[in-house]
Design a protein around this nucleic acid. Structure first.
Lengths: 238, 238
DNA sequence: CGATGCGTTGATAACTTTCAAATTTAGTGG
DNA sequence: CCACTAAATTTGAAAGTTATCAACGCATCG
């Protein structure tokens, strides 16, 4: 079968710890929004930031899940290597996203920087301690899990569809997570996209070309895509 | 494309309320296991049981999620109808399983009885009230969501695989949820299985026949399957 | 430059779906 | 209990989709 990458590029584990360089939000930002997003605010205060170069491993599958992470800049992929060598990408993480949150005590996925990335590192024990004292934090933690569950369920719906539908959904998803406008900048390679959608790199490439031929999108460079006809994409999306 | 059922059999909504008939566990069952599974015990005490005949709807997508449910006997499917009429089955629920737990206030899936089914009905507001008073219950509620997330992620891994691998995984999953032994009784139709695995009914049928020809399984009746060679199935599983 | 990595394109093979029909099973009324 | 009808499942043949294998273009980088 081998739908996906069989050969892994070895990830370098070469993080740059920027200890003490904690981003403290300006006070006025805390004034309003009362308990609106206290989790996010607490997290800002809890951990140092780390910088990872492109392709560096942030954590590996089955390693103890003592930390979780919040993207500051750059992009990260989480993934799992299957028994036969295929790679399934769990998620692409963009600034603001939280990843590495586990319920069990080991990571079920690995994580690598796609581009140079800065992340906030939060000690899990500190966060759970906080949650046990503050019900609001606890609820937000639960909400985070619930949102991940919802995303997983959307992905299930995506994976039963055709290649065209998967690629269209992917583009719309990325557009939704990108700055407003019709142009999206993809940080990830075609192989990453293929492993995310459960397709081969060739099928992804061909599908993009055919969407381009249909004037639904433009592909000025391989990493930049302009949506020309969103409704056609949404229609494909089902 | 139409991978899945396009025509739905109309579900009858004809539940039989057995109000007051709450199963109270014998006291000695509560003595030990202290807080081991207080959620399950609390739920026993909270709600009435309802009986649904085969194919009856238990709740519909987008209906208010005021209740959640715990299977007592029989089996239930949760599902979603897609824009183009396809049906994706979210889960098969067997005795002991909890379903209908939502984070938002409406159901994201519908639920129907596959066979005549008895379920415990729990008012969500009561449970969340309980959870806000008792941290243990809260944690168990969170654990329930986390477990669902894990199942969803396993399903994602399943859906990128070939038809043989999907069917093999399905059989192993059902075997794991059935009483010990190599024989499993499937409460659901081939169409249900197909809509669960993202395949057509014909592909499911053919795959089962080919597994039977390979002496990996036996199919004495269409609803009963005997695993003859689990390691072969696991190998297919990846 | 020549090597290397990434993306695209082409031809062919493998797999899954679709459409159609045969067969078995289940349900119903006599 | 049997016969009959409807529903579910299996099987067959053909078409459609995606993967695989191979080659090519294009950029980056030493």
């Amino acid at each position: 079968m081998l739908t996906q990458t069989a050969i892994r590029t070895d990830a370098i584990r070469r993080p740059t710890m920027l200890a003490g360089k904690v981003a403290i939000p300006p006070q006025h930002a805390l004034d309003h929004a009362a308990e609106a997003d206290s989790l996010a605010q607490q997290m800002q205060l809890m951990g140092p930031t780390m910088s990872f170069p492109r392709n560096a491993e942030i954590f590996g599958e089955n390693e103890p899940a003592d930390f979780l992470y919040k993207m500051i800049s750059g992009s990260v992929r989480t993934y799992k290597i299957l028994g036969d060598g295929r790679r399934q990408i769990g998620d692409f993480c963009l600034p603001g996203d939280v990843f590495g949150l586990e319920f069990a005590d080991v990571h079920t996925l690995s994580a690598e920087a796609i581009t140079d990335a800065r992340v906030l590192v939060i000690k899990r024990s500190a966060l759970t301690a906080l949650a046990s004292r503050d019900a609001v934090i606890g609820r937000e933690l639960h909400a985070l899990t619930a949102r991940e569950l919802q995303r997983a369920q959307e992905r299930i719906l995506l994976l039963i569809k055709s290649a065209q539908e998967r690629v269209a959904s992917f583009l719309l998803e990325m557009a939704g997570r990108s700055p407003p406008g019709n142009s999206i900048e993809l940080p990830m390679s075609r192989q990453d996209i293929a492993d995310y959608l459960g397709l081969t790199i060739e099928t992804v490439s061909r599908t993009l070309t055919s969407l381009e031929n249909a004037a639904t999108i433009e592909v000025p460079t391989s990493r930049r895509i302009v949506l020309r006809n969103r409704s056609a994409l949404s229609r494909l999306n089902g």
